[in-house]
Simulated assay, not measured.
Amino acid sequence: MSSETVNTSGPTTGTGPSTNPAQVVYHGDLTSIKFNGLNYLDWSRAVIIALGGRRLLGYVNGEIKAPAETDAKYSDWRATDYGVMAAINNTILPELGRNFLGAATARDMWLAIETTYSHKGDDAKLFEIKESIRKCTQGNRSMQEYYSELQGLWDELKVCEKPCPNCVQTGEKNKVFDFLMGLNPEYESVRSMVFAQLSLPPIGSVYYAIQ
């Protein structure tokens, strides 16, 4: 298996890479998931995890800023940024990846992909996901299968919705409501138990209480 050594920088404060860049060795692709235009959620998560594990996430989320071109550290930053762009592009099908090769930085490439495929702010897509959540019920499936489908829909919803720092608590409550509404009738006592508590427990606690 081939390997490629990329000179990168650790966490930063201020506008540029740290003065102690680490040596990060890649073994193969960032992820085995190949982006095909339809699997943005799974692909983006896998890439974020891979870049975070290599201390390169700052190049796509904006935390690692480009130093001035006259700065002695600019050459290292530029080389690493190109390396991140190449690594991301290698996880995309060629017919899609070529559309983003004109990006100036890894950050620009990432935002271009997000804008094109994440459906963020797309009201029609949001309606479609919320309608799927409303119709999602346990039926003949196991509790795990039912919860997994809801979890996937919630994740899609999170990607499509615009950031709302003040909506976190409301979103958690909605998950509990979604989950309880779709349960089979024999779990009516569980619904009563949950709502009898002084404060609504998080969705994870509700799910594991039923397991």
Rank of each mutant, 00 (worst) to 15 (best):
T15Y: 02
I48S: 11
P11K: 05
G14L: 05
I49S: 11
G53D: 14
I33F: 09
S142Q: 06
V24Q: 09
E172P: 00
D122M: 10
N184K: 12
G16S: 08
E161K: 02
S192H: 06
A79G: 01
T15E: 13
A196D: 14
Y59E: 00
S2A: 15
R98V: 05
G10D: 12
G102E: 12
S75F: 05
H119Y: 11
E128K: 02
G16H: 01
N99R: 13
V47N: 06
T116N: 13
N36I: 12
G52A: 08
Y59P: 03
A79T: 04
A46P: 11
T12L: 02
L200H: 05
E114G: 08
L57W: 05
Y187Q: 06
E131T: 14
L57M: 08
H27L: 07
L93D: 14
M85D: 04
S205L: 13
G97K: 13
S148V: 09
E145L: 08
T137L: 10
G58L: 05
S132V: 01
M109C: 04
N7K: 10
L56D: 09
T5G: 03
R134T: 10
A22T: 12
M181K: 03
E63H: 10
I33E: 15
F100D: 03
M143G: 01
G97I: 02
N90A: 13
Q197E: 15
S2P: 13
N184T: 12
T12I: 03
A79V: 04
F35M: 08
A112S: 14
Q151C: 13
N7Q: 11
T115P: 01
S192F: 02
P201I: 10
Y147Q: 09
Y82G: 11
N7S: 13
T13A: 14
Q138A: 08
I203D: 07
Y208T: 09
A103E: 00
V159P: 01
G28W: 07
T137G: 13
C160G: 05
C160E: 00
K135Q: 10
L126Y: 02
A50W: 00
M193F: 11
A87M: 09
Y117Q: 07
R54Y: 07
A50R: 01
S3E: 12
R191T: 13
L200Y: 02
A50F: 02
G53I: 04
T80F: 00
S132Y: 04
L183M: 07
E128V: 06
Y82N: 15
G182N: 04
G52M: 04
Q138P: 03
A22K: 11
F177A: 11
M1N: 13
A124R: 14
T8N: 04
R45H: 09
T5P: 04
K120W: 02
R55K: 12
